[in-house]
């Protein structure tokens, strides 16, 4: 019988201090996330220095709770995986240095993981991957379509040329005076409203899988501004629904077209915006007719930042023999195709 593989994962790239243990790359044994969102709310966004301060305060409690939950020790682990980028550099460095200390203390292989590779591999904790596949990655900092012909191979076939979808959500939320983070509030309002504001669908040039959301964001701001000047009342539910309809329509259409062109077996939804109900519903109905393509959407808790996804991706890299040294650094702009 093959021995089980246990990988300990650490994630501190933004405002969640997280650790997890994953068995054989597919099964969560322990998963601990300490969110700082409450401390950043008053600033209307994540403040890097404050995020770093929280990480260094929380890290031991999070690591400790993870071993406790699993009832395991580092002697049971096969490797330590940690997010080495992209993200906030000061925040990344806490996870990276904690991981190095553990790897050194217990003589364990150290594996640096790309944050987005982690988001994609969150899906493997739900459903085994079938290649080739596409992943639509939508989060606060990313909007990408990634093609994978096999484990550990990532090709970005489309990405945002300006704002990430999550960023556009936050800015539109601010325009509508909704609290930070705006995504869930817009999603909730949109469910109560109708697409009445005729906002643009930015598709870019024919055949492109790239995205652009800054024009849409400006259109929302202009709509609010013009209404104010005319003394008209904005219906927030309808504006949220109109904005969301535009984002979701473009995301769905490009993903569907790419899935057909690349003849993939699976489409995986990844990243924090994957929690968005409007996007989930739209993708589900679009892919319902495409019988040979399986749509995989992880549960909400695995869409937002966590370390189980880092451990899951780290397991594949571990099995492929990838290792990092004690001189590993945090890389705020790490490239997924080259990491």
């Amino acid at each position: 019988m093959k021995k089980n593989t246990y990988v300990f994962g650490i994630e501190t790239s933004c405002d969640e201090t997280a650790a997890a243990i994953v068995k054989n790359g597919t099964e969560i044994v322990a998963n601990v996330v300490s969110s700082q969102i409450e401390s950043h709310k008053r600033f209307g966004g994540v403040v890097p220095e404050i995020a770093s301060r929280h990480h260094v305060e929380q890290i031991i409690a999070v690591l400790d709770e993870t071993l406790e939950q699993a009832g395991l020790t580092f002697k049971d682990m096969d490797a330590i995986a940690v997010t080495k980028g992209p993200g906030l550099v000061g925040a990344l460095l806490i996870g990276v240095n904690a991981a190095k200390a553990i790897a050194f203390a217990h003589n364990l292989p150290l594996i640096g993981v790309h944050h987005i590779a982690g988001h994609i591999y969150a899906n493997r904790l739900v459903k085994e991957m079938a290649f080739p596949l596409l992943s639509l990655v939508v989060s606060g900092g990313h909007t990408e379509i990634v093609y994978m012909k096999d484990h550990g191979s990532f090709e970005v076939i489309g990405e945002t040329r300006d704002d990430a979808a999550g960023e556009a959500y936050d800015k539109v939320a601010r325009t509508l005076n909704l609290p930070y983070p705006g995504g869930p509030h817009i999603d909730r309002l949109a469910a109560q409203g109708e697409d009445t504001y005729n906002l643009p669908r930015v598709r870019l040039e024919e055949g492109s899988y790239d995205f652009s959301f800054s024009g849409l964001k400006s259109a929302v701001i202009n709509t609010v501004h013009n209404a104010e000047q005319r003394g008209e009342e904005i219906i927030p539910e309808n504006l949220a629904a109109s904005f969301q309809a535009s984002v979701v329509e473009v995301l769905t259409e490009k993903t569907l077209r790419a899935a057909k062109e690349y003849e993939v077996k699976q489409v995986l939804l990844s990243g924090g915006v994957a929690a968005n109900k409007g996007l989930r519903m739209s993708l589900e109905s679009a892919f319902a007719d495409l019988r040979n393509v399986e749509l995989v959407i992880p549960p909400l808790s695995l869409c937002t930042d966590n370390a189980a996804m880092i451990a899951a991706a780290g397991t594949i890299l571990f099995e492929q023999g990838k290792r990092d040294g004690m001189d590993m650094n945090g890389h705020p702009g790490l490239d997924i195709e080259a990491f």
Partner: peptide, 19 residues
Amino acid sequence: SYTGVRIGVTIAKTLAWTL
């Protein structure tokens, strides 16, 4: 240095905790 202090503290406390 904020970052310098955090690197030293993170390594030291993780080592002490795990050992």
